[in-house]
Write a protein that binds this DNA or RNA. Structure first.
Lengths: 192, 192
DNA sequence: CAATATATAGACCGGTCGGTCTATGTGGAG
DNA sequence: CTCCACATAGACCGACCGGTCTATATATTG
């Protein structure tokens, strides 16, 4: 043990999170995850007795934390909400372009494929979206916008960015993300 | 022939469109589609020599047309863009709730799963989103909003609704769709 | 009528799926 | 040292996958 920087469990979750984001749940075989994590099948079922579903829950939780950390970083690095949105959109556009438009939202594909099937996964994903919305709302509130209005605008922004990431993948262009971010940024500037 | 209201080809496309929307691409087996369309496998490969990918392109085109028709109907039935968004969101909320939160955007799951894989599907999906955006923009322009601003707001609205449909499936609640629509409606009212 | 293209019908194939199983290695507690 | 829980290791299973194949029925056309 400790021969690797990450334990087998962590490598499994990390590989699963990346593959589920890129290819989705159903198209990602457990053998793909095992190969990427350099782990045998026995280890997977030792750490995740529930199999693929349990692995997906853990992967979604990891993706949720990482994305939240990114949002919080961009929020604290920015002087206002308009700047935050611009920074965040640029980052997402970079991810899209560098990955050949494979990397969008870390959990959107998982949500659309599995939220209606797995209760555990649905609640993890629901919490993820709420935490992201709350982080955006906190930045808006810090700009002097009312609590209620901050929540409303944060939901609009989150949904618009999520939708723009879907369009971006269909069009293979980051333009929808950048354009939507511009519109949102102008809206925020008018509110503050 | 004509013994059925729909030809075998049409039944195959219809069944595929419905199943891809509900379960996604990878989770929908061809045998599921064949059973739903009451057709043998030979017919599928007769009408769609490219197999699953060709079927998905046809299903996406059908879904695109139907959704466009829905948007256009709500647009023409409404006095202004604010009313249109409210009507459209109510309709989507109804679909979500009546289906147990299985039916969201007719092509979003397909997009996230396959847009990076299939060029033909990506271009069909890209055209679908553009046609929807154009229909929304036309309604905004009819309210007296400038051409450029109409396009900008239409993109924001489309992306926000798409994203709200993702959140709605994770949360198993139509609330995100209704709330986002409310925010968008108020924004439109301020612009006109 | 015969001839031909269109469409239906489903058995069948190799490959891959998620999951189970038994066996082996390993590190700390007594 | 023994002992035992933890973890690794991968062979193996039945089910299902998308796709191919041959055979048959049904229109259309000369």
């Amino acid at each position: 043990m400790a021969s690797e920087t990450h334990s087998t469990r962590e490598r499994l979750i990390g590989a699963a999170a990346r593959l589920f984001q890129e290819r989705g749940y159903a198209s990602t075989g457990l053998n793909d995850v095992l190969a990427a994590a350099r782990a045998p099948k026995g280890s997977l079922y030792h750490h995740f007795p529930d199999g693929k579903e349990g692995l997906a829950v853990a992967a979604a939780a990891l993706a949720s934390e990482r994305f939240l950390a990114t949002i919080c970083k961009d929020a604290s690095d920015s002087g206002d909400a308009t700047q935050m949105i611009a920074r965040f959109a640029s980052r997402l556009a970079g991810w899209l372009e560098q990955s050949g438009f494979k990397l969008g939202c870390p959990v959107a594909t998982l949500t659309l494929e599995q939220a209606a099937v797995s209760d555990r996964l649905a609640s993890t994903l629901s919490a993820a979206f709420s935490s992201w919305q709350d982080a955006l709302a906190a930045r808006l509130k810090a700009d002097g916008i009312s609590e209620h209005r901050s929540g409303e605008l944060a939901l609009l922004a989150l949904c618009a960015i999520e939708g723009a990431l879907v369009l971006a993948r269909a069009k293979r262009s980051a333009a929808p993300v950048m354009e939507v971010a511009g519109t949102l940024g102008a809206l925020f500037a008018r509110e503050a």
